[in-house]
Design a protein around this nucleic acid. Structure first.
Lengths: 213, 213
DNA sequence: GGCGCATAAATTGGCGCCAATTTTGATACC
DNA sequence: GGTATCAAAATTGGCGCCAATTTATGCGCC
């Protein structure tokens, strides 16, 4: 009788109402809507087969997320990538993820480690047989589950949010294939460090991984 | 010709369009709309003398900020305070603010220190002659400017956001007048530590200040 | 007298229209 | 030929209405 989908991830995908906000966000993240693109309401309306109010609500939410910029009586456009902001977000990520390294090592169960290995392997597989977006999502999934071990749910949500805030073109964040493979290797090393209980090593790995990812 | 108010704080107050979202947020923070209160669109429409779409946009934004909860076909209500979440947010604050203590000490100029002393004094004055909300804002202002010294603008915004996320009733966060006076005293001590260049002391003061504030 | 049901009231939420502003294009003038 | 001005087209954004769902109320029934 009563609905029980409080969150947004009840099912993997909702074919009924895929939520326009999420669709536009995916297109921005995938690089299909490059920074600077003007988001005309008419175009979006047609592109996503939705109504005007839905488009407007989605745009307003994306403005709140700082992903698009709104200029009154002019329109909405995809926010230009800000080098300084990206650097600042990386710094924040380093501080937080390094700081909870000890909790991760302390709390990680055998099941947690096994799960991380699966996610790390999935990332490695997608290096060869996957799109950039799939790679991006696999990377996100690994880091989400890694952080979740620390036990601070709010922290997981927070970092997911701020990662979206800057990475307007996550596709271009890994420049070379060599760098991607390196990232995958670092994931494995991080899990190794957790298994061995080497907090210091995990901290250093995390720091370098985030700063040059 | 062209507008230059990119942000939202061009002037101290905008008598033209005070933005309903901000008004509702203030009322929630001030405790005038306690947790659990149902926010009927009709009531808000009349209370803030605005139109239906404005109310709806404001509610949607507050849902994004996690301050109100939305139940489809039922309505919006002020989010109940979650003890676990509040604890987690405090933990995050401790990690971040302690982590940038060294940068604050390193970068603080004489002007910065003078400014912090003014803000700390203002807080102390308001302990005697101010409302709880004024006190709350003065406290926020002190911590904002303190963090700003570290040079990471994104960090300042982030902490401002997550502080709003939980403190549905900031009025009740300081239980006794003695605790408030203690907070004011701690502000002064933190500025002293910065002036002396004592990073370790600032870190310890910050940690305690946040955890029991 | 208590419980269940049907009807009515209220509230939410989707949708479209029209005014205000801006941009673009053409025309006339220097 | 370039520039300023004016008009037309396009886009944004405010506003209200009406259907769908839920909640409250009163009536009949057990």
């Amino acid at each position: 009788m009563n609905s029980l989908e409080a969150g947004a991830a009840a099912q993997a995908q909702e074919p009924q109402t895929p939520d326009v906000t999420e669709l536009i966000l995916q297109d921005i993240l995938a690089g299909r809507l490059p920074p600077g693109t003007w988001l005309k309401q008419i175009d979006l309306e047609r592109r996503y087969s939705c109504t005007r109010p839905e488009v407007r609500r989605a745009l307003d939410r994306l403005v709140q997320k700082r992903l698009v910029e709104h200029i009154p009586n002019r329109g909405y456009h995809v926010h230009e990538q800000d080098g300084r902001r990206a650097q600042e977000v990386s710094d924040i990520r380093v501080i937080l993820e390094v700081a909870v390294s000890d909790r991760i090592v302390a709390k990680a169960s055998a099941a947690d480690i096994a799960n991380l290995r699966v996610l790390a392997s999935r990332f490695d597989d997608l290096v060869l047989n996957g799109t950039m977006l799939e790679l991006y999502e696999a990377n996100l999934a690994f880091h989400r589950d890694l952080l979740a071990i620390a036990g601070n749910q709010e922290l997981v949500e927070l970092i997911t949010e701020i990662r979206q805030r800057t990475s307007s073109a996550p596709v271009s964040q890994w420049r070379t294939r060599a760098r991607i493979e390196q990232s995958g290797h670092e994931h494995q090393q991080m899990v190794d460090a957790i298994e061995k209980g080497d907090v210091g090593h995990l901290m250093e790995l995390t720091r370098r991984h985030i700063l040059q990812a």
